Simulated scan of single mutants.
Amino acid sequence: MFGGIGINLGMTNLFSETGESLPCTIVKIGPCYVVQIKTIEKDGYCSVQLGMIDKKEKKTTKSLQGHFKKAGILPKRKLLEFRGDFSSNFKLGDKIDASFFEEGELINIKGISKGKGFQGVVKRHNFSGVGERSHGQHNRLRAPGSIGAGSDPSRVFKGKKMAGRMGGKNVTIKNLKILKIDIDQNILIIKGSVPGNKNSYLMIKKNGTKNFRYTRK
């Protein structure tokens, strides 16, 4: 089994048997439905596309309406594609929910990290600044310092750590442990934090699953 689509509902804490407080994230998993099964013969590669959260037909294009009708399901707001040959395990319209996971299982979670805007080198790259304020230097505390490379090659190398936009990138956190599962409400309680804001979409996969593609839709 590869995984599913989840929504970050926020954080809480649980207590271990020894009384230790464990930070946890509450994730609502699905229910997801198999929208499309791609094969090498027809599409050039193998994958399974999942959809989550119903969407009104009048807000769905005609082409996408036909796409969902082939699977026999209502239009979905969020789509995610898992790479790999899972055609023998699923068929169009199959439902995937919290029952596909087990307590104590390790999973990988992928999402878009929080956007923090344009940040300096101290916050973005953990620089310590040039040094203390002295000899009239009033603006050196959080400065990046020298960035040049001398007269040879007389340029700044690409990829140098400098100020810029921070966050808003695809981030994957591996080997997160499922502490509890509520099958009735399709909720996973996962140890630790996950990428993204509250109510953001998450891509959840079991360990050993091949790479999957995140799609902004």
Rank of each mutant, 00 (worst) to 15 (best):
K116F: 09
Y45S: 05
G150Q: 06
G117E: 04
C46H: 03
E57F: 11
I96Y: 13
L79Q: 09
E132H: 15
H67T: 10
M166L: 10
F68V: 05
D94G: 12
A143Q: 02
S63Y: 11
G168R: 03
I73W: 04
S146K: 00
K70T: 13
I109T: 03
L80W: 11
N170A: 13
F101T: 11
F157A: 06
S128M: 07
S99P: 01
K123Q: 10
V121C: 06
G51H: 02
A149S: 13
K180F: 09
H135A: 12
I73Q: 00
S47Y: 07
G131W: 12
G111S: 07
F82S: 06
K123W: 05
G167Q: 02
F90E: 11
D97A: 13
L64D: 01
L74F: 15
I173M: 05
G117W: 01
L92T: 04
G129R: 01
G131K: 04
I173K: 08
G51C: 03
V130L: 14
S134E: 12
V121S: 01
D152C: 10
T172Y: 10
G72T: 02
F157G: 02
D94Q: 08
E41G: 00
L106W: 14
K58P: 00
S63W: 11
K161N: 03
M52S: 07
G93M: 01
E103A: 15
K161Q: 08
T172N: 07
G129I: 02
G104S: 10
Q119H: 07
V156I: 14
S47C: 01
P144V: 09
T60N: 00
